[in-house]
């Protein structure tokens, strides 16, 4: 590449750059727009919704953080999503191991059954799920939402782990079996360490999805003190009178954590997204 001048590259690649450039601009603009708008006054926004703020204000960012309680919501999100991701790591790796390595008559059927759950629209089970959580006395508790989230993401997570274990060389596990290790020991000391890439991918994806979940968070957490970030955002948006800059401030705050994950866990993300799609 070193020998090619920019002019030559432009001559050859201008069409590709144009397409990719437009797409990149479309990807970045939400972040740029929110960043600019959060510092505008309402009047300035109405006058010019695109340009930079002439007199930047911190009013809306402050309001979103204080009376909007965005920091409190963020704390709840981290507790709930963190715990659910942990449970998913444990439950899904065990289940995936059983379905892939151990295998038994009917294990394929169970696997297909779990996969079928991926096709159930959330709207269908929304009401009865809420009833179930209520009957267990878990409405308005972190634990209720943690279990709901675990159940929500288990099918995908089991699918991911099963596919990963399927790709592991059998010989390693069989060798350990021969040495007389118990199944649990083989799982813990050999299979789990080997599956670190899959586990980190699964954790990243589940974190992002659950961090963004609205519907069940809204239903199960009825106490303002227990609510998560997307609900806080929906509250902000649901108030008829919320001015655009205040909404932008809320959006900005909710974008920060996912952006951090995006840049830190790049590799896990693309690995997870492509899992199972190619073979």
């Amino acid at each position: 590449m070193g020998g090619v001048t920019f002019r030559e590259a432009l001559g050859r690649w201008w069409a590709a750059w144009l397409v990719l450039g437009v797409l990149t601009a479309m990807s970045i603009y939400p972040f740029v727009f929110v960043l600019i708008t959060a510092f505008k006054t309402k009047i300035a926004y109405n006058k010019d919704p695109i340009g930079l703020p002439a007199e930047p204000t911190l009013e809306y960012l402050e309001r979103a953080l204080t009376s909007g309680n965005m920091l409190g919501y963020l704390g709840n999100s981290i507790i709930v999503v963190g715990a659910a991701v942990l449970l998913l790591l444990i439950f899904a790796s065990m289940a995936g191991y059983a379905l892939s390595v151990l295998r038994f008559r009917g294990s394929n059927l169970i696997f297909m059954g779990i996969l079928a759950l991926l096709a159930v629209p959330a709207a269908v089970v929304m009401i009865p799920l809420y009833r179930t959580v209520g009957q267990l006395g878990l409405v308005n508790t972190h634990f209720g939402l943690i279990l709901t989230y675990t159940a929500l993401q288990l099918p995908f997570s089991i699918f991911l782990m099963t596919s990963y274990f399927n790709g592991l060389p059998r010989e390693i596990i069989e060798a350990a079996d021969m040495d007389g290790a118990t199944r649990w020991q083989v799982f813990r000391t050999i299979a789990l360490p080997l599956s670190f890439p899959a586990l980190s991918t699964m954790a990243t994806l589940n974190f992002l999805w659950l961090f963004n979940e609205l519907l069940f968070a809204l239903l199960i957490m009825q106490d303002d003190a227990n609510r998560t970030l997307p609900v806080g955002l929906a509250t902000l948006q649901g108030q008829n009178t919320t001015p655009v800059p205040l909404l932008a401030a809320g959006l900005l705050i909710s974008m920060v954590p996912v952006l951090a994950v995006f840049f830190v866990a790049q590799r896990e993300l693309s690995r997870g997204v492509t899992a199972g799609a190619i073979k």
Binding site: I127, Y130, R131, G134, Q135, V139, N140, L218, L219, Q222, D223, D224, V231, A234, T235, Q237, G238, Q239, N240
Partner: peptide
């Protein structure tokens, strides 16, 4: 008093789900 601020757009949705379990 436990005062709960509910989002206006989801107010009756929340009420109906809470009400279904008398909570």
């Amino acid at each position: 008093i436990k005062h709960v601020a509910q989002p206006h757009a989801n107010y009756y949705q929340l009420w109906q789900t809470a009400n279904a379990t008398q909570s």
